[in-house]
Design a protein around this nucleic acid. Structure first.
Lengths: 127, 127
DNA sequence: CAGCATCCGGCTCGATACTG
DNA sequence: CAGTATCGAGCCGGATGCTG
């Protein structure tokens, strides 16, 4: 294991920007939620808007555009009346989705522990 | 596969806040880098500062504090002159580190594809 | 329905200077 | 060495109102 994370660390050190740049998708407050919500299959704009709850139209649009631009989302416009737009993951994004799922799983299982650590820290640091 | 991501999606929909809250560690621009850099074993403040390159003293300190507070980092102060402080991952953070490694791996392998998608998008959208 | 434009407040972050 | 303090710019993100 020491081998692999050394490689990763070197990638970060040598050229922090490129990797960070790509990882910024995940860094976005909403990106993970959008990607996971869109993984269900073709999802419409409004569905996403309600699925994520808390996101504004503006932020949703912005993130959608960025994810589409970077080849993570496919945007399909159905020229009907009323308009209908569907978003789905590209194969590349599906791989990312797998990682994301792991991340969310971690978050869920450790949430209590984190809350405890936080409380303990606040109690101690309050000298 | 459809089962697992449905569960995750429900977790996001039902209580987007808690999960997002935890995931915000990863969301931070620097968190991933810090966690990966600290995974080497005990790392000193200055080592981190140079390893991450681009981060300011302030941001490093802030992130370090937050990660420590949430039980992801252990901060060990050696009462020597000059002072010496070492950071290392908690077991909980080690698990997270595994996910992060996957993420970075994904980012590295798809960087070219993302760059291409971006270029293509910019070319097309420029009507 | 699925956006885009505009305004604007807040908080993040970087730069700089100082300390135990 | 390992931080803390302060200040100010900038971007993020919410609210609102308008279109095809």
């Amino acid at each position: 294991m020491s081998q692999s994370h050394t490689r990763v660390a070197e990638a970060l050190r040598d050229e922090a920007c490129p990797v960070t740049e790509v990882l910024d998708h995940v860094a976005g407050k909403w990106s993970i939620g959008i990607l996971i919500a869109a993984a269900h299959g073709p999802v419409r704009f409004t569905e996403l808007e309600r699925a994520i709850k808390g996101i504004s139209r503006r932020m949703l649009t912005l993130n959608l555009r960025r994810l589409e631009r970077d080849g993570l989302l496919i945007r399909t416009v159905h020229p009907t009346v009323p308009p209908k737009v569907e978003y789905s993951l590209t194969p590349m994004a599906r791989e990312l989705h797998a990682c994301l799922t792991g991340l969310v799983g971690w978050a869920e299982s450790h949430r209590p522990a984190i809350a405890r650590a936080r409380a303990a820290y606040d109690a101690t640091a309050r000298t």
